[in-house]
Amino acid sequence: MTDAEEPRFRPGDRVRVLTGTPPRHIRTPAFIQGQTGVIEVFYRAFKNPESLAYGDSGPNMAPLYRVRFDQGTVWRDYQGCPNDKICVDIYQHWLEPA
């Protein structure tokens, strides 16, 4: 495994999602960018779809996590209940320690 494939986070770790909506294929929705959440699950490394979208060029493998966020912190005016969560699957290269 290369460094890029090695999981850097464990369940329970707090992470922040990086920002950027370049005009190319990315898998991290804008609404969750910049938000801070908690790693819920580490799945495994997958072939990086952001490379596969361009015929498998660029970085190859990407560890994937399910990251859990409080709805109340994600939206300015969330109308649901305080305990509600949003979970988004995010590749490691979109995450930094928080």
Binding site: T21, P23, Q35
Partner: peptide, 18 residues
């Protein structure tokens, strides 16, 4: 009507969440 925080990036057209 619904919005992420002020500093959230502007999504591309297909990126519909929120």
């Amino acid at each position: 009507v619904y919005s992420p925080r002020e500093d959230s990036p502007i999504p591309r057209t297909h990126d519909r969440g929120g």
